[in-house]
Design a protein around this nucleic acid. Sequence first.
RNA 1: GGCCCUAUCGUCUAAUGGUUAGGACAGAAGCUUCUCAAGCUUUAAAUCGGGGUUCGAUUCCCCGUAGGGUCACCA
Length: 478
Amino acid sequence: MAPIRPKAMHKKLSDLLKPFRRPKVVTRFAPSPTGLLHSGNYRTAVFSYLYARQHGGKFILRIEDTDKARSKKEYEDNIFESLEWLGLEYDEMYRQSDRTDIYVEYLQKLIDDDKAYVSKEPAKDDPTRTVELVRFRNPNKKITFTDLIRGDIEFDTSDLGDFVIARSMTEPVFHFVVVVDDHLMGVTHIVRGEDHISNTPRHLLIYEALSAPKPTYAHLPLVLASDRSKLSKRHGAKPMTYYRDTGYMPAALLNYMSLLGWNPGTEQEIFDLKGLVKAFDLSKVQKGGAIFNEDKLRWVNKEHLKLLPKDNFTAVLKARIDATERAKELGWNVTPELAAKLGPAVLERINNYGDIDIMITERDLDYYFSDPAYDAESLRWKGESVQASATHLEFIQETIKSISEKNWDEGSIKAALWPYAEEHGRGNVLWPFRYALAGKDKSPNPFTIAGIIGKDATARRVHEALKKCANHADKPLT
RNA sequence: GGCCCUAUCGUCUAAUGGUUAGGACAGAAGCUUCUCAAGCUUUAAAUCGGGGUUCGAUUCCCCGUAGGGUCACCA
């Protein structure tokens, strides 16, 4: 027999002790996979997660699929996907449909103790059939609990009657399994939506019947639709993955959701995950419901976009453009160099990545890839003639020749042309220049575009504009 | 309807007995390179109503009102 070495023994001992050194805080997110979950659902996950992490605790994901008829695999997958995208990592995952044996055991225990009983009743959907429901023997008493957000709440449970805790011995309902699971999983803090407040007395009664220690509750205010009703699909609530697919950053969603019903007490509004874990405070959570405001989300996303390393944005920009139909059709070649130059001009015009697609459909990127088509009349600045524009374009044509390929950038183009524009009127000079390059009423300024498309393209487009002017007979000014 | 929760600008919110009721988003105006965007500056905008308590109430208490949640063999 090999001698037991002290070190190995020590290790063994710590393993044995592990179950007794439970983290002080254990929270969970317990969605049911009966539909695509929206920001209201995920905000409870965020708060739960934040609270666990800031206390060095454990965060559990539990899929509540006791309703076999409505639960679907695709919805479950969507929960995993959304949580992964948001970056909310869970320490343990359970699925209630895997735990039927446990529930049967506890159900039986309650029946043996006469805390629950089997009740033969006509089936609700089909009165000719008899079912054996399990009902909880309600002690009919007043019950009080302290909510971390709302303070003391009192209920008279006699209003509840002997409520059903299982449809049959193998089909427990939510009220029962949620308590058994939270108890068994060592959940210390139940962070959930306000819509569960009225369920809490039932749950507390079951805890008592099980002689299990009660958890601490924190009932979050609801996230509301714009008409102040509970957020729901009917009211335009979008699944989390919609925001991913629209091109929002997960950090921005996380940031915005955490600001719904909570604030740090300072004027800081932009946080990364780490900062949120540090600053979050459950006791500072608001009591009233909050409307989800996509405008503000867009702003938060923009702030996160601005914090992104430049190369990072450039890479996304290139990938995003490459993926569009228009880029493929027209054979746009987005080189890394071009993407880098394009980056700043695009960044200040978008709030999320999806806006890049919108720019493309609105033809706001075309002029970076090909010469524009437009009418000579468009080159005319307010109250001026096309011929006047031509005069300025001729000066521009000559001037840009003097800028070397090597020095070709926004700054030097502007430096070369600015004094002339000041002298002859900015609009007179800049409008035709910009129109020659972009062929659109709205675009970035001509120096920026010229810097991006390069000297050759700039010279060619100015030359084209001049040709249009030459073929154009000015109508008499009225 | 019973029970429960909530109530500050349009929206998210700060100030919990004494403030010109603050910030942010959205809005308006102005400035900044013509247009757009971005940025900067300025501006408009709120304590649901009525009673108390108090020298003094956004803040504490009561009553209304409004909104929301929940009353399942859904979760």
